[in-house]
Design a protein around this nucleic acid. Structure first.
Lengths: 205, 205
DNA sequence: GAATATATGAACCGGTCCGTTCAGTTTCAA
DNA sequence: TTGAAACTGAACGGACCGGTTCATATATTC
C-alpha cells in the first residue's frame, strides 16, 4: 500500500542525519553526495537514515528548507535606519557582501544554480528567504529616506536592485568564475564605497 | 603501453561527434549527459566517439574550448564609439544583455557555475573569452571618452564593472533563481535606461 | 528486568554509466 | 577492383549508487 511519503521527525538521531546531510550536500551538491557518504558523515547507519527520510530527494529538500529558514532569521537583524543614507547603505552593503562572499553563501549559490533543473523551486525559495528580504528592507528604507528628503527616487524597485548589483561589481565575476576569489578588505571597501558613491550620485539630493 | 591521451582530429565524423556533444552537454551539463546519449545525438557509434576522444572529460573540454572561441570571435564586432556616451552605453548594454539572457548564454553560465569544482579552469576560460573582452572594450571606450571630456572617471576598472553589474539589475536574480525568467522588451529597456542614467549621473560631466 | 522502540552493519538488488572489445560492414583512395 | 582505413552495433566488465532487507544489538520505558 502507498505509504505516506513524509518525514519522521521523532527519534534520537534525527538531528545527526540532518547535520550530516547538510555537511555533505553543501560540500558536494545533490548528485555528488552519495547516501553512504551522508550516513557516514552523520555517524549513522544507512538503514537509520532511510527510517527518517523516504528518499534522498526529500532529505535534500529538508536540508534546503532548514538552511533557508536560518537565512531568513539572520536577515531579520537590521540596521539603524536613522543614520545618514551613506552610512546606512554602507552598512547594508557590508552585510550583503559578508554573506555573499562567505564560504557558506558561495556554496549555497552554486548549488542553487547547479540544481535549478532538478529542483526548480530551490532558487525561488533561496531568493525569497534572503535576497528578497534584503531588497524589501532597502526599498522600505529608501522610501522613508525619500520622505525625509534625503534621496529622490522615481523607481524604488529598480533603485534597490541597482544598489544590490553595484555591490557585486568586480567581486562577483571574480569568484563565480574562479578567477581570483580571494578578497582583501581594501578591495571590498573599494567596491562598497564605489557603490555608495554611484548610487548617491544618481539618487542623492 | 601508454597511448598518448590526445585528440584525433582526422576522420570523417569528427565534427559530428563534436556537434552531438555540444548539443547534449549544453542541454544536460557534464554529469547529466551520458556518452550513449552523445553518440546517439551525433549519429555515431560509441566506438567511433572513443576513437576520437580518449574520455568524456576531454570531449567536454574540447566542446567548451570551441564554444569559448566562438564567443570570443562574436565579441570582436564592436560598436560605433564615436556616438555620445549615452548611446554607446545603451548599445553595449543591449549587446551584453542579449547574450546573457539568451538560452545559450544562460545554459553556458549554469554549466560554468555547476562544474566549477570539476573543471576549475572552465569559468576562467569562459570569463576571458567573453565578459573580460567586453569589460576591456568598455574600459577603453571610457578612457577615450574621458580624453574627449565626455566623462570624468577616477577608477576605470571599477566604472566598467559597475556598468556591467547595473545592466543585470532585476533581470539577473529573476532568471538565475528561476523566479520569473521571462522578460518583455519594456522590462529590459527599463533596466538598460536605468543603468545608463545611474552611470552617467556618477560619471557624466 | 522485561518489553518495546530504535539503531546497526553488512549484504543484496536493480539500474546506470564509462570505457573496451570485436567481428563484420561501409567508405574511399590507389 | 582491391586493400586499408574508418565505422558499426552489440555486448560486456567493472564501478558506483539508491534503496531494501534482516538478523543482531542497544537504548528506553514501565
Amino acid at each position: 500500500m502507498a505509504q505516506t511519503a513524509t518525514i519522521l521527525r521523532t527519534g534520537r538521531k534525527f538531528d545527526q542525519v540532518l547535520e550530516g546531510a547538510r555537511e555533505v550536500f553543501l560540500a558536494s551538491g545533490f548528485e555528488g553526495a552519495s547516501v553512504d557518504d551522508i550516513a557516514r558523515a552523520a555517524g549513522v547507519s544507512k538503514a537509520t537514515l532511510y527510517s527518517y527520510f523516504p528518499d534522498k530527494r526529500l532529505l535534500f529538500m529538508e536540508v534546503a528548507r532548514v538552511e533557508c529558514q536560518h537565512q531568513a532569521d539572520a536577515c531579520l537583524q537590521m540596521i539603524d535606519t536613522t543614520a545618514p543614507p551613506r552610512d546606512v547603505l554602507k552598512m547594508a552593503a557590508t552585510r550583503m557582501l559578508g554573506f555573499m562572499l562567505s564560504e557558506f553563501g558561495q556554496r549555497v549559490f552554486r548549488i542553487c544554480v547547479a540544481e535549478a533543473d532538478r529542483f526548480p523551486d530551490l532558487g525561488r525559495q533561496f531568493y525569497e528567504t534572503g535576497p528578497k528580504i534584503v531588497r524589501e528592507r532597502i526599498k522600505q528604507y529608501l522610501q522613508d529616506a525619500a520622505a525625509r528628503g534625503e534621496v529622490r527616487i522615481d523607481d524604488y524597485d529598480l533603485a534597490a536592485d541597482q544598489f544590490a548589483e553595484l555591490c557585486k561589481a568586480d567581486l562577483f565575476p571574480r569568484w563565480v568564475f574562479n578567477i581570483d576569489p580571494h578578497f582583501t578588505p581594501a578591495e571590498i571597501d573599494r567596491v562598497i564605497d564605489g557603490a555608495v558613491e554611484t548610487f548617491m550620485a544618481r539618487y542623492g539630493v
